[in-house]
Amino acid sequence: MDEVLDVGPFYHGTKAELRVGDLLTAGFRSNYRPEVVMNHIYFTALRDGAGLAAEIAAGGDGTPHVYLVEPTGQFENDPNVTDKKFPGNPTRSYRSREPLRIVGEVTDWTRLTPEALQMWRDRLAAMRSDDRAEIIN
């Protein structure tokens, strides 16, 4: 990769309890289509975008966390949002086949209201039942 896509900082939202130095890797089930095992690990340069991902992540009622991360290798624009929904990547969403290293936890991100969280859960449920909805993996 010759072109620098973004210099960060970068964030990853999840319900997993992680520590500084831990590595996030691909190879786990998608939060949005559990039947899909992901070939990439996803992250964003928007703190509250990672917060949204943490809130709607699989894991039941676990506590959502936003972690400050650093890519350990090459990364690319996330085609699930940049090619399909937001050309030009205004969401600053990325993916990598290489691990992300946890460098800290961020606690000052904006939480969703219960109503907004339910709206996102409803959208995800509709997407899961739509055979045309696709995750580019």
Rank of each mutant, 00 (worst) to 15 (best):
V103P: 03
R128Y: 02
R121W: 10
L117C: 06
R92Q: 09
E98W: 05
E115T: 14
R97C: 00
R121I: 02
D108S: 04
R132V: 04
A126H: 15
R97S: 14
T107F: 13
Y94C: 14
R97L: 10
E105I: 01
Y94V: 10
E98R: 14
R92Y: 00
R95P: 04
Q118V: 05
D122N: 15
L124W: 08
R123K: 15
A116Y: 06
R92F: 05
T91Y: 06
R128K: 15
Q118K: 12
I102C: 03
E105W: 09
P90L: 05
S96C: 07
R121D: 06
R97M: 02
R132C: 07
P114S: 13
I102H: 00
A126T: 09
T113G: 10
R111G: 10
W109Y: 08
G104E: 01
E115S: 10
R123A: 12
L112R: 12
Y94R: 03
V103C: 05
M127H: 09
P99W: 07
L124P: 11
E98D: 07
A116V: 15
D131K: 15
P90Q: 14
A116Q: 13
V103D: 00
T107D: 05
V106G: 01
T110P: 01
P99H: 10
T91K: 14
T107N: 11
W109S: 07
P90R: 11
G104V: 14
Q118Y: 04
Y94L: 08
G104D: 08
L117H: 09
R97V: 13
E98A: 08
N89K: 13
G104K: 04
Q118N: 07
S93M: 03
R101W: 03
Q118D: 14
L100H: 11
D108L: 11
W109H: 01
W120H: 15
R121Q: 08
R92L: 14
R128N: 10
T107M: 11
E98H: 15
